[in-house]
Nucleic acid binder design. Structure first.
Lengths: 105, 105
DNA sequence: AGGATCTGCAATCCAATGGTTGCAGATACT
DNA sequence: AGTATCTGCAACCATTGGATTGCAGATCCT
């Protein structure tokens, strides 16, 4: 299985502030400004984070007049999870096979 | 669900070289020196990567005489996948509920 | 039109990190 | 014993990246 696009996804998910953003978005769509009011970082910092989250497709921008709201795409997380699960199973399968060969079975 | 320990895991998985290492380890246990022979980075760089991978528990060191071999723990990846999948489902559930409320259903 | 608010871009700063080289300690081989 | 090999520690460098401030453009409201 190709690892490929998984890496940027994990890199995006490997930051605490971004999870705070995702968690906040779990309560409904919100703009960068709105998020900045309840998170301990600047609007611009949040904007950057939203950009990387959008880049990997885990969040989606929705223009509403002059503001841009974001919403989480849960299915993207689930899809990533499926791929990761497959990789984990694959590793166990191969290593078990190798072990059996090594033990002469 | 607590996100907690997921973040360091994703941070660990969010690096290309580390996936090269994991992939190489998929063909069997190997030491840092052995890995350095087939990857385009130094042994010490690999050693550092193995340290962070071991820190999050996706890899396990096995001392064999004077060398230290590492093996992938596939089940850790699967476990992470399960948690991520649960989060994805949770988000979709909540956002669907919010949407229904907003539509007055 | 004028004010308030939201977004976007750019420059800047500092810490974290991926990578390197060099050296010392430990273990194996002959 | 002596040599070769493997690990581990430390210093160091360059780049990335999270975060900030400042300013300009766009949109809404009265």
């Amino acid at each position: 299985m190709a690892v490929g696009s998984l890496v940027p996804m994990f890199a995006a998910l490997g930051d605490d502030t971004r999870w705070q953003i995702l968690t906040a978005l779990g309560e409904g769509e919100a703009s960068a400004s709105a998020l900045a009011e309840r998170l301990p970082v600047t609007r611009q910092a949040i904007a950057k984070h939203l950009a990387v989250l959008a880049e990997v497709g885990v969040v989606e921008p929705i223009r509403v007049g002059r503001e841009v709201r974001y919403r989480v795409i849960g299915s993207q997380l689930s899809a990533t999870a499926k791929r990761l699960d497959a990789l984990g199973a694959e590793w166990d399968r191969r290593l078990t096979a190798i072990k059996e060969i090594a033990e002469g079975l």
